[in-house]
Design a protein around this nucleic acid. Structure first.
Lengths: 232, 232
DNA sequence: CGCCGATTTGATCGTGGTCAACAATAGTGG
DNA sequence: CCACTATTGTTGACCACGATCAAATCGGCG
Protein backbone atom coordinates (compact mmCIF):
# COMPACT_ATOMS: atom_id res chain seq x y z
CA UNK A 1 0.00 0.00 0.00
CA UNK A 2 2.63 2.52 1.08
CA UNK A 3 5.61 3.40 -1.00
CA UNK A 4 8.31 3.02 1.61
CA UNK A 5 11.23 3.51 -0.73
CA UNK A 6 10.46 7.19 -1.07
CA UNK A 7 9.38 7.70 2.54
CA UNK A 8 11.00 10.75 4.13
CA UNK A 9 11.54 8.94 7.42
CA UNK A 10 12.79 5.78 5.76
CA UNK A 11 16.23 6.09 7.33
CA UNK A 12 15.30 7.54 10.69
CA UNK A 13 12.29 5.50 11.80
CA UNK A 14 12.42 1.91 12.99
CA UNK A 15 12.08 1.00 9.29
CA UNK A 16 15.77 1.74 8.88
CA UNK A 17 16.29 -1.73 10.34
CA UNK A 18 14.79 -3.31 7.24
CA UNK A 19 16.38 -4.08 3.89
CA UNK A 20 14.76 -3.80 0.48
CA UNK A 21 12.80 -7.05 0.63
CA UNK A 22 11.65 -6.51 4.18
CA UNK A 23 10.62 -2.96 3.56
CA UNK A 24 8.32 -4.04 0.77
CA UNK A 25 6.79 -6.58 3.17
CA UNK A 26 6.10 -3.77 5.60
CA UNK A 27 4.85 -1.61 2.75
CA UNK A 28 2.30 -4.24 1.89
CA UNK A 29 0.77 -4.19 5.36
CA UNK A 30 0.95 -0.44 5.94
CA UNK A 31 -1.03 2.46 4.63
CA UNK A 32 -0.44 6.20 4.70
CA UNK A 33 -2.99 8.26 6.55
CA UNK A 34 -3.46 12.00 6.98
CA UNK A 35 -4.68 13.62 10.16
CA UNK A 36 -5.87 17.19 10.59
CA UNK A 37 -4.68 19.20 13.59
CA UNK A 38 -6.83 18.23 16.55
CA UNK A 39 -8.01 14.97 15.02
CA UNK A 40 -7.91 12.00 17.39
CA UNK A 41 -6.29 8.74 16.32
CA UNK A 42 -6.77 6.57 19.42
CA UNK A 43 -8.79 6.93 22.60
CA UNK A 44 -7.49 6.07 26.03
CA UNK A 45 -8.55 2.50 26.79
CA UNK A 46 -9.17 1.45 23.20
CA UNK A 47 -8.07 -1.99 22.18
CA UNK A 48 -4.63 -1.38 20.77
CA UNK A 49 -5.08 -2.84 17.32
CA UNK A 50 -3.34 0.00 15.56
CA UNK A 51 0.32 0.93 15.40
CA UNK A 52 1.98 3.62 13.34
CA UNK A 53 5.07 5.56 12.41
CA UNK A 54 4.91 9.34 12.29
CA UNK A 55 5.93 10.57 8.87
CA UNK A 56 5.25 14.25 9.39
CA UNK A 57 3.79 16.46 12.09
CA UNK A 58 3.39 16.05 15.84
CA UNK A 59 0.93 14.12 18.01
CA UNK A 60 0.22 14.14 21.72
CA UNK A 61 -0.32 11.19 24.06
CA UNK A 62 -2.77 12.03 26.83
CA UNK A 63 -4.18 10.53 30.01
CA UNK A 64 -7.18 11.96 31.81
CA UNK A 65 -8.38 12.29 35.38
CA UNK A 66 -11.97 11.27 36.11
CA UNK A 67 -12.72 14.95 36.83
CA UNK A 68 -11.74 15.89 33.30
CA UNK A 69 -8.20 17.16 33.91
CA UNK A 70 -5.78 16.10 31.21
CA UNK A 71 -2.07 15.36 31.32
CA UNK A 72 0.00 15.09 28.17
CA UNK A 73 2.31 12.14 28.85
CA UNK A 74 4.22 12.16 25.58
CA UNK A 75 4.70 13.97 22.29
CA UNK A 76 5.80 12.21 19.12
CA UNK A 77 7.38 13.73 16.03
CA UNK A 78 8.44 12.57 12.58
CA UNK A 79 10.08 9.11 12.66
CA UNK A 80 8.69 8.30 16.11
CA UNK A 81 6.64 5.21 16.76
CA UNK A 82 3.04 5.27 17.96
CA UNK A 83 1.14 2.62 19.87
CA UNK A 84 1.50 -0.22 22.28
CA UNK A 85 2.65 -3.49 20.69
CA UNK A 86 2.30 -6.69 22.74
CA UNK A 87 -0.46 -5.28 24.87
CA UNK A 88 -4.19 -5.27 25.33
CA UNK A 89 -5.55 -1.75 25.68
CA UNK A 90 -3.85 1.52 24.80
CA UNK A 91 -3.26 3.27 28.11
CA UNK A 92 -3.31 6.74 26.56
CA UNK A 93 -5.15 8.65 23.86
CA UNK A 94 -3.38 9.87 20.73
CA UNK A 95 -4.37 13.11 19.00
CA UNK A 96 -2.75 15.14 16.24
CA UNK A 97 -1.31 18.46 17.42
CA UNK A 98 -0.57 19.64 13.89
CA UNK A 99 -1.67 18.35 10.53
CA UNK A 100 0.15 15.07 10.28
CA UNK A 101 0.92 12.08 8.12
CA UNK A 102 1.33 8.69 9.67
CA UNK A 103 2.05 5.22 8.35
CA UNK A 104 -0.36 2.83 10.05
CA UNK A 105 -0.40 -0.95 10.32
CA UNK A 106 -2.37 -3.55 12.22
CA UNK A 107 -0.87 -4.69 15.50
CA UNK A 108 -1.09 -8.33 14.49
CA UNK A 109 0.67 -7.73 11.16
CA UNK A 110 3.41 -5.79 12.86
CA UNK A 111 4.00 -8.39 15.53
CA UNK A 112 4.25 -11.11 12.93
CA UNK A 113 6.78 -9.10 10.98
CA UNK A 114 8.71 -8.21 14.13
CA UNK A 115 8.98 -11.85 15.17
CA UNK A 116 10.83 -12.59 11.95
CA UNK A 117 13.03 -9.50 12.02
CA UNK A 118 14.99 -9.12 15.23
CA UNK A 119 16.66 -5.95 14.00
CA UNK A 120 13.24 -4.34 13.82
CA UNK A 121 12.60 -5.24 17.44
CA UNK A 122 16.01 -3.95 18.37
CA UNK A 123 15.30 -0.57 16.77
CA UNK A 124 12.01 -0.43 18.61
CA UNK A 125 13.75 -1.36 21.86
CA UNK A 126 16.30 1.44 21.49
CA UNK A 127 13.56 3.90 20.70
CA UNK A 128 11.52 2.76 23.69
CA UNK A 129 14.52 3.05 26.01
CA UNK A 130 15.12 6.61 24.77
CA UNK A 131 11.48 7.44 25.27
CA UNK A 132 11.61 6.03 28.79
CA UNK A 133 14.59 8.23 29.63
CA UNK A 134 12.82 11.29 28.25
CA UNK A 135 9.72 10.42 30.26
CA UNK A 136 11.71 10.10 33.45
CA UNK A 137 13.34 13.48 32.96
CA UNK A 138 9.81 14.77 32.52
CA UNK A 139 8.90 13.24 35.89
CA UNK A 140 11.63 15.29 37.53
CA UNK A 141 10.08 18.36 35.93
CA UNK A 142 6.55 17.52 37.07
CA UNK A 143 7.54 16.51 40.57
CA UNK A 144 10.20 18.98 41.56
CA UNK A 145 10.16 22.14 39.42
CA UNK A 146 8.33 25.42 39.90
CA UNK A 147 6.45 27.16 37.11
CA UNK A 148 9.44 29.13 35.82
CA UNK A 149 11.72 26.10 35.73
CA UNK A 150 9.06 24.06 33.99
CA UNK A 151 8.53 26.49 31.13
CA UNK A 152 12.26 27.17 30.69
CA UNK A 153 12.99 23.43 30.57
CA UNK A 154 10.15 22.88 28.14
CA UNK A 155 11.38 25.52 25.71
CA UNK A 156 14.95 24.24 25.90
CA UNK A 157 13.91 20.66 25.26
CA UNK A 158 11.79 21.73 22.29
CA UNK A 159 14.62 23.76 20.85
CA UNK A 160 16.93 20.77 21.12
CA UNK A 161 14.50 18.21 19.83
CA UNK A 162 13.49 20.30 16.84
CA UNK A 163 17.13 20.94 15.97
CA UNK A 164 17.86 17.24 16.11
CA UNK A 165 15.09 15.41 14.26
CA UNK A 166 15.15 11.65 14.09
CA UNK A 167 17.95 9.92 15.91
CA UNK A 168 21.53 9.78 14.76
CA UNK A 169 21.98 11.54 11.42
CA UNK A 170 23.44 15.07 11.40
CA UNK A 171 22.66 16.81 14.66
CA UNK A 172 22.11 20.43 13.72
CA UNK A 173 22.23 21.54 17.35
CA UNK A 174 19.49 23.46 19.12
CA UNK A 175 17.46 26.01 17.18
CA UNK A 176 16.95 29.54 18.49
CA UNK A 177 13.69 30.18 16.68
CA UNK A 178 10.79 27.80 16.22
CA UNK A 179 7.03 27.42 16.02
CA UNK A 180 5.15 25.86 18.91
CA UNK A 181 2.93 22.94 17.99
CA UNK A 182 1.05 23.63 21.24
CA UNK A 183 -1.65 25.99 22.41
CA UNK A 184 -1.17 27.58 25.83
CA UNK A 185 -3.68 25.12 27.24
CA UNK A 186 -1.70 22.20 25.82
CA UNK A 187 1.54 23.55 27.25
CA UNK A 188 -0.25 23.59 30.58
CA UNK A 189 -1.29 19.98 30.05
CA UNK A 190 2.33 19.08 29.32
CA UNK A 191 3.79 20.86 32.32
CA UNK A 192 1.04 20.09 34.81
CA UNK A 193 -0.07 23.66 35.37
CA UNK A 194 -2.89 26.04 34.45
CA UNK A 195 -3.15 28.09 31.24
CA UNK A 196 -2.93 31.30 33.23
CA UNK A 197 0.33 30.31 34.88
CA UNK A 198 1.80 29.33 31.51
CA UNK A 199 0.82 32.72 30.10
CA UNK A 200 2.28 34.59 33.07
CA UNK A 201 5.60 32.80 32.77
CA UNK A 202 5.72 33.57 29.04
CA UNK A 203 5.28 37.26 29.68
CA UNK A 204 7.84 37.15 32.48
CA UNK A 205 10.50 35.57 30.26
CA UNK A 206 9.61 37.98 27.48
CA UNK A 207 9.86 41.03 29.74
CA UNK A 208 13.26 39.84 30.89
CA UNK A 209 14.33 39.66 27.20
CA UNK A 210 15.23 35.99 27.56
CA UNK A 211 12.79 35.00 24.85
CA UNK A 212 10.64 36.85 22.31
CA UNK A 213 7.16 36.10 20.96
CA UNK A 214 6.89 37.53 17.42
CA UNK A 215 3.54 35.71 17.20
CA UNK A 216 1.65 33.64 19.75
CA UNK A 217 3.02 30.41 18.38
CA UNK A 218 6.54 31.56 17.56
CA UNK A 219 9.37 31.52 20.07
CA UNK A 220 12.79 33.12 19.74
CA UNK A 221 15.42 32.29 22.31
CA UNK A 222 17.36 35.51 22.90
CA UNK A 223 19.52 34.38 25.81
CA UNK A 224 20.00 30.65 25.98
CA UNK A 225 22.29 30.89 28.99
CA UNK A 226 19.74 32.77 31.04
CA UNK A 227 17.03 30.37 29.95
CA UNK A 228 19.16 27.41 31.05
CA UNK A 229 19.77 29.14 34.38
CA UNK A 230 15.99 29.43 34.93
CA UNK A 231 15.57 25.76 34.04
CA UNK A 232 17.64 24.90 37.13
CA UNK B 1 29.78 -17.37 38.05
CA UNK B 2 26.10 -17.40 38.98
CA UNK B 3 24.07 -20.53 39.29
CA UNK B 4 21.12 -19.54 37.15
CA UNK B 5 19.40 -22.91 37.21
CA UNK B 6 18.42 -22.43 40.86
CA UNK B 7 17.72 -18.70 40.57
CA UNK B 8 14.39 -17.72 42.16
CA UNK B 9 13.59 -15.29 39.36
CA UNK B 10 14.70 -17.70 36.64
CA UNK B 11 11.20 -17.91 35.18
CA UNK B 12 10.03 -14.37 35.74
CA UNK B 13 12.99 -12.21 34.71
CA UNK B 14 14.12 -11.64 31.14
CA UNK B 15 16.18 -14.81 31.61
CA UNK B 16 13.03 -16.82 31.03
CA UNK B 17 13.69 -16.19 27.34
CA UNK B 18 16.78 -18.35 27.47
CA UNK B 19 17.11 -22.12 27.23
CA UNK B 20 19.57 -24.30 29.14
CA UNK B 21 22.59 -23.62 26.95
CA UNK B 22 21.94 -19.92 26.75
CA UNK B 23 21.35 -19.57 30.44
CA UNK B 24 24.72 -21.03 31.20
CA UNK B 25 26.25 -18.53 28.79
CA UNK B 26 24.57 -15.76 30.77
CA UNK B 27 25.63 -17.42 34.00
CA UNK B 28 29.24 -17.29 32.92
CA UNK B 29 29.13 -13.50 32.44
CA UNK B 30 27.01 -12.68 35.50
CA UNK B 31 27.74 -12.54 39.18
CA UNK B 32 25.49 -12.33 42.22
CA UNK B 33 25.89 -9.28 44.41
CA UNK B 34 24.37 -8.27 47.72
CA UNK B 35 23.41 -4.73 48.59
CA UNK B 36 22.54 -3.39 52.03
CA UNK B 37 19.54 -1.08 52.42
CA UNK B 38 20.62 2.41 51.44
CA UNK B 39 23.66 1.25 49.49
CA UNK B 40 24.10 2.92 46.11
CA UNK B 41 24.71 0.86 42.98
CA UNK B 42 24.97 3.55 40.29
CA UNK B 43 25.25 7.31 40.37
CA UNK B 44 23.33 9.61 38.06
CA UNK B 45 25.59 10.38 35.09
CA UNK B 46 27.90 7.39 35.53
CA UNK B 47 29.01 5.58 32.43
CA UNK B 48 26.50 2.81 32.12
CA UNK B 49 28.80 -0.17 32.08
CA UNK B 50 26.73 -2.19 34.49
CA UNK B 51 23.41 -3.95 33.98
CA UNK B 52 21.58 -6.22 36.38
CA UNK B 53 18.54 -8.27 37.24
CA UNK B 54 16.93 -7.86 40.63
CA UNK B 55 16.80 -11.21 42.42
CA UNK B 56 15.43 -10.00 45.72
CA UNK B 57 14.56 -6.71 47.37
CA UNK B 58 13.70 -3.28 45.98
CA UNK B 59 15.78 -0.45 44.52
CA UNK B 60 14.97 3.14 43.62
CA UNK B 61 15.92 5.11 40.51
CA UNK B 62 16.47 8.78 41.28
CA UNK B 63 17.14 12.05 39.49
CA UNK B 64 18.21 15.21 41.30
CA UNK B 65 17.70 18.92 40.92
CA UNK B 66 20.80 21.13 41.14
CA UNK B 67 19.39 22.54 44.39
CA UNK B 68 19.45 19.09 45.97
CA UNK B 69 15.81 18.11 45.58
CA UNK B 70 15.36 14.50 44.57
CA UNK B 71 12.70 12.76 42.51
CA UNK B 72 12.31 9.00 42.51
CA UNK B 73 11.60 8.14 38.87
CA UNK B 74 11.24 4.41 39.21
CA UNK B 75 11.24 1.52 41.65
CA UNK B 76 12.35 -1.98 40.70
CA UNK B 77 11.50 -5.24 42.42
CA UNK B 78 12.47 -8.89 42.08
CA UNK B 79 12.74 -10.00 38.43
CA UNK B 80 12.96 -6.41 37.14
CA UNK B 81 15.82 -5.23 34.99
CA UNK B 82 18.26 -2.48 36.00
CA UNK B 83 20.32 -0.24 33.78
CA UNK B 84 20.45 1.39 30.41
CA UNK B 85 21.66 -0.91 27.62
CA UNK B 86 22.69 0.68 24.30
CA UNK B 87 23.45 4.00 25.90
CA UNK B 88 26.27 6.15 27.14
CA UNK B 89 25.59 7.51 30.60
CA UNK B 90 23.03 6.30 33.11
CA UNK B 91 20.49 9.11 33.38
CA UNK B 92 19.50 8.18 36.94
CA UNK B 93 21.07 6.92 40.13
CA UNK B 94 20.22 3.48 41.52
CA UNK B 95 20.14 2.80 45.26
CA UNK B 96 18.90 -0.15 47.31
CA UNK B 97 15.76 0.59 49.32
CA UNK B 98 15.91 -2.71 51.18
CA UNK B 99 18.65 -5.29 51.52
CA UNK B 100 18.80 -6.73 48.04
CA UNK B 101 20.39 -9.32 45.83
CA UNK B 102 21.07 -8.55 42.21
CA UNK B 103 22.60 -10.43 39.32
CA UNK B 104 25.04 -8.08 37.57
CA UNK B 105 26.73 -8.27 34.20
CA UNK B 106 28.83 -5.97 32.05
CA UNK B 107 26.94 -3.92 29.47
CA UNK B 108 29.21 -5.14 26.68
CA UNK B 109 28.75 -8.79 27.59
CA UNK B 110 25.01 -8.39 27.75
CA UNK B 111 24.78 -6.61 24.42
CA UNK B 112 26.83 -9.31 22.76
CA UNK B 113 24.55 -11.99 24.18
CA UNK B 114 21.42 -10.04 23.26
CA UNK B 115 22.54 -9.65 19.66
CA UNK B 116 22.60 -13.43 19.32
CA UNK B 117 19.35 -14.06 21.18
CA UNK B 118 16.41 -12.13 19.81
CA UNK B 119 14.04 -13.63 22.36
CA UNK B 120 16.10 -11.99 25.08
CA UNK B 121 15.70 -8.63 23.40
CA UNK B 122 12.00 -9.27 22.99
CA UNK B 123 11.58 -9.94 26.72
CA UNK B 124 13.49 -6.78 27.46
CA UNK B 125 11.32 -4.86 25.01
CA UNK B 126 8.10 -6.05 26.64
CA UNK B 127 9.44 -5.17 30.06
CA UNK B 128 10.51 -1.73 28.86
CA UNK B 129 7.11 -1.09 27.30
CA UNK B 130 5.41 -2.04 30.57
CA UNK B 131 7.76 0.20 32.50
CA UNK B 132 7.01 3.07 30.10
CA UNK B 133 3.27 2.63 30.69
CA UNK B 134 3.77 2.62 34.44
CA UNK B 135 5.93 5.72 34.20
CA UNK B 136 3.29 7.55 32.19
CA UNK B 137 0.58 6.73 34.71
CA UNK B 138 2.96 8.16 37.26
CA UNK B 139 3.19 11.37 35.21
CA UNK B 140 -0.57 11.76 35.48
CA UNK B 141 -0.17 11.45 39.24
CA UNK B 142 2.63 14.01 39.43
CA UNK B 143 1.02 16.50 37.09
CA UNK B 144 -2.64 16.40 37.98
CA UNK B 145 -3.29 14.91 41.41
CA UNK B 146 -3.52 16.58 44.82
CA UNK B 147 -1.78 15.24 47.91
CA UNK B 148 -4.63 12.95 48.96
CA UNK B 149 -5.04 11.43 45.50
CA UNK B 150 -1.29 10.91 45.24
CA UNK B 151 -0.95 8.96 48.46
CA UNK B 152 -4.09 6.91 47.86
CA UNK B 153 -2.91 5.99 44.35
CA UNK B 154 0.52 5.15 45.66
CA UNK B 155 -0.80 2.77 48.31
CA UNK B 156 -3.14 1.09 45.85
CA UNK B 157 -0.41 0.57 43.28
CA UNK B 158 1.89 -0.87 45.92
CA UNK B 159 -0.79 -3.23 47.14
CA UNK B 160 -1.36 -4.45 43.59
CA UNK B 161 2.26 -4.74 42.64
CA UNK B 162 3.21 -6.63 45.78
CA UNK B 163 0.30 -9.03 45.29
CA UNK B 164 1.39 -9.69 41.75
CA UNK B 165 5.15 -10.22 41.71
CA UNK B 166 6.93 -10.83 38.43
CA UNK B 167 4.82 -10.75 35.31
CA UNK B 168 2.46 -13.46 34.22
CA UNK B 169 2.47 -16.39 36.64
CA UNK B 170 -0.32 -16.66 39.22
CA UNK B 171 -1.70 -13.26 40.07
CA UNK B 172 -2.60 -13.39 43.74
CA UNK B 173 -4.57 -10.16 43.55
CA UNK B 174 -3.92 -7.08 45.67
CA UNK B 175 -2.77 -7.51 49.26
CA UNK B 176 -4.48 -5.67 52.14
CA UNK B 177 -1.48 -5.64 54.44
CA UNK B 178 2.13 -4.96 53.55
CA UNK B 179 5.39 -3.40 54.63
CA UNK B 180 6.56 -0.19 53.01
CA UNK B 181 10.04 -0.32 51.54
CA UNK B 182 10.04 3.49 51.79
CA UNK B 183 10.68 6.06 54.47
CA UNK B 184 8.30 9.03 54.61
CA UNK B 185 10.95 11.14 52.92
CA UNK B 186 11.22 8.61 50.09
CA UNK B 187 7.47 8.50 49.65
CA UNK B 188 7.66 12.27 49.28
CA UNK B 189 10.37 11.85 46.65
CA UNK B 190 8.16 9.38 44.78
CA UNK B 191 5.05 11.55 44.86
CA UNK B 192 6.70 14.91 44.39
CA UNK B 193 5.72 16.37 47.75
CA UNK B 194 7.22 17.22 51.14
CA UNK B 195 7.67 14.78 54.05
CA UNK B 196 5.27 16.81 56.15
CA UNK B 197 2.50 16.59 53.60
CA UNK B 198 3.02 12.83 53.29
CA UNK B 199 2.74 12.48 57.04
CA UNK B 200 -0.39 14.63 57.22
CA UNK B 201 -2.09 12.57 54.53
CA UNK B 202 -1.20 9.36 56.35
CA UNK B 203 -2.80 10.57 59.56
CA UNK B 204 -5.83 11.80 57.63
CA UNK B 205 -6.42 8.42 55.99
CA UNK B 206 -5.80 6.72 59.32
CA UNK B 207 -8.25 8.95 61.19
CA UNK B 208 -10.85 8.19 58.55
CA UNK B 209 -10.27 4.45 59.18
CA UNK B 210 -9.44 3.88 55.53
CA UNK B 211 -6.00 2.54 56.39
CA UNK B 212 -4.20 1.57 59.58
CA UNK B 213 -0.57 1.93 60.64
CA UNK B 214 0.32 -0.85 63.09
CA UNK B 215 3.94 0.30 62.79
CA UNK B 216 5.47 3.15 60.83
CA UNK B 217 6.36 0.92 57.95
CA UNK B 218 3.30 -1.32 57.96
CA UNK B 219 0.12 -0.47 56.08
CA UNK B 220 -3.24 -2.17 56.37
CA UNK B 221 -5.92 -1.26 53.88
CA UNK B 222 -9.21 -1.27 55.80
CA UNK B 223 -11.50 0.12 53.13
CA UNK B 224 -10.22 -0.42 49.63
CA UNK B 225 -13.28 1.16 48.05
CA UNK B 226 -12.85 4.39 49.96
CA UNK B 227 -9.15 4.41 49.16
CA UNK B 228 -9.90 4.00 45.46
CA UNK B 229 -12.41 6.84 45.69
CA UNK B 230 -9.71 9.14 47.13
CA UNK B 231 -7.34 8.10 44.35
CA UNK B 232 -9.74 9.70 41.84
C1' DC C 1 -15.93 45.08 10.20
C1' DG C 2 -17.70 42.02 13.72
C1' DC C 3 -17.61 37.74 15.88
C1' DC C 4 -15.53 33.98 18.68
C1' DG C 5 -12.07 31.40 20.69
C1' DA C 6 -7.43 32.03 22.55
C1' DT C 7 -4.62 34.60 25.42
C1' DT C 8 -3.41 37.92 28.74
C1' DT C 9 -4.01 40.35 32.96
C1' DG C 10 -5.93 41.16 37.50
C1' DA C 11 -7.84 39.84 42.16
C1' DT C 12 -8.56 36.48 45.46
C1' DC C 13 -8.17 32.01 47.71
C1' DG C 14 -6.47 27.49 49.10
C1' DT C 15 -3.19 23.79 49.00
C1' DG C 16 0.83 22.44 50.10
C1' DG C 17 5.73 24.13 51.20
C1' DT C 18 8.65 25.84 54.80
C1' DC C 19 10.24 26.58 59.38
C1' DA C 20 10.11 25.13 63.99
C1' DA C 21 9.05 22.39 67.95
C1' DC C 22 7.95 18.06 69.63
C1' DA C 23 7.33 12.85 69.85
C1' DA C 24 8.55 8.36 68.86
C1' DT C 25 11.62 4.98 67.33
C1' DA C 26 16.02 2.89 66.33
C1' DG C 27 20.70 2.57 67.26
C1' DT C 28 24.80 2.65 70.55
C1' DG C 29 27.52 1.98 74.35
C1' DG C 30 27.93 1.65 79.31
C1' DC D 1 18.99 -3.86 80.18
C1' DC D 2 18.68 0.66 80.38
C1' DA D 3 20.20 5.44 79.56
C1' DC D 4 21.58 8.47 75.92
C1' DT D 5 21.72 10.03 71.30
C1' DA D 6 20.58 10.29 66.56
C1' DT D 7 17.30 9.69 63.29
C1' DT D 8 12.66 9.61 61.63
C1' DG D 9 8.06 10.90 61.98
C1' DT D 10 4.24 14.02 63.58
C1' DT D 11 2.00 18.30 64.48
C1' DG D 12 1.40 23.30 64.39
C1' DA D 13 1.89 28.12 62.57
C1' DC D 14 2.66 30.75 58.81
C1' DC D 15 3.42 31.96 54.10
C1' DA D 16 4.00 31.67 48.98
C1' DC D 17 3.05 29.77 44.75
C1' DG D 18 0.02 28.68 41.66
C1' DA D 19 -5.17 27.58 40.97
C1' DT D 20 -9.40 29.65 40.26
C1' DC D 21 -12.67 33.04 39.01
C1' DA D 22 -13.54 37.07 36.30
C1' DA D 23 -12.69 40.58 32.96
C1' DA D 24 -10.26 42.71 29.28
C1' DT D 25 -7.66 42.21 24.97
C1' DC D 26 -5.85 40.05 21.03
C1' DG D 27 -6.03 37.68 16.70
C1' DG D 28 -7.93 34.91 13.10
C1' DC D 29 -11.65 34.25 9.92
C1' DG D 30 -16.11 34.80 8.00
Amino acid sequence: MSNCSTCVVRNRSICSALDGTEISALGSISRLRSLAAGEPLLWEGDDSVLLANVVEGALKLTMSMPDGGEQIVGVVYAADFIGRPFGGATPYGVTALTDAQICVFAQSDFERLAADHPTLEQKLLERTLDELDRTRRWMLLLGRMNAEQKLASFLLELSERLGNPGCEPENAGPVDRFELAFSRQQIGDVLGMSVETVSRQFTRLTRQKIIANPTRRAVVILDRGALAARAG
